[in-house]
């Protein structure tokens, strides 16, 4: 995907600049942006490392497992036909909790295992099952409580209060996730009873 997006961006920039007469500007901007990218990474490393360090403690203390267990009533509502002790249910709740906490390195492997388990009981191996649709729609509704990368970028560009967007971000995340659940439930009833 990026093979096209990236190439098109640059080609488009050069073509547009040849009409607007901004060739020197794009040259300067290319050089400047390359330097900016490294400066940004160096500075944001501090904030990101602080946060992943904290999340490592959470992970080692077993917070993901502990919270995953608390999720079982929610899981029953979302996946009524999935047995609560099943591997699929465990992987899905781990994926949800890891996503909520923003532990990306634990979320994706659990999510892929969940898909593998769901596929085992899927009657049609080329068509997504109801549980797969529910799982992915929620997964893609954005679950993360603290978007620490966004805070880091804001800090780098001299925001007076980089973290002020966390609370609003949390509320909007709730909106998108609740909408995801409602939408998936409606789709289940309407088209695929």
């Amino acid at each position: 995907m990026l093979n096209y997006i990236w190439g098109i961006m640059i080609l488009l920039a050069v073509v547009v600049a040849s009409f607007t007469g901004k060739m020197p500007d794009i040259t300067n901007s290319a050089l400047e942006s390359a330097q900016d990218a490294v400066a940004l990474c160096v500075k944001m490393t501090g904030i990101v490392a602080m946060w992943t360090g904290l999340m490592k403690i959470a992970e080692k203390a077993g917070l993901v497992e502990a919270l995953s267990k608390k999720l079982s009533p929610v899981m029953k509502f979302l996946f009524p036909d999935l047995h609560s002790g099943s591997k699929a249910a465990k992987h899905i709740s781990t994926n949800f909790i890891a996503n909520i906490l923003g532990i990306g390195w634990a979320a994706t492997p659990a999510g892929l295992k969940a898909m593998e388990e769901l596929q085992k009981t899927n009657p049609d191996k080329t068509t997504a099952s109801r549980n797969m649709c529910m799982f992915l729609i929620i997964n893609m509704s954005s679950l993360q409580i603290v978007s620490v990368n966004i805070v880091a970028y804001r800090a780098q560009y001299n925001s007076v209060n980089p973290s002020e967007i966390i609370g609003p971000g949390l509320v909007t995340t709730l909106v998108s996730t609740l909408t995801a659940v409602i939408a998936a439930k409606i789709f289940e009833k309407v088209r695929f009873k």
């Binding site: 892929l112 898909m115 080329t126 992915l136 609003p168 909106v175």
Partner: peptide, 28 residues
């Protein structure tokens, strides 16, 4: 996710995800 289990027919997954993200954008 779908490629990892070779699923090609994704039913309403894209529609559901778009609706939820759209709701998030409006709320934001």
């Amino acid at each position: 996710y779908f490629m990892s289990v070779k699923i090609t027919k994704t039913k309403y997954t894209l529609a559901g995800a778009l609706i939820s993200n759209f709701a998030g954008i409006i709320a934001a």
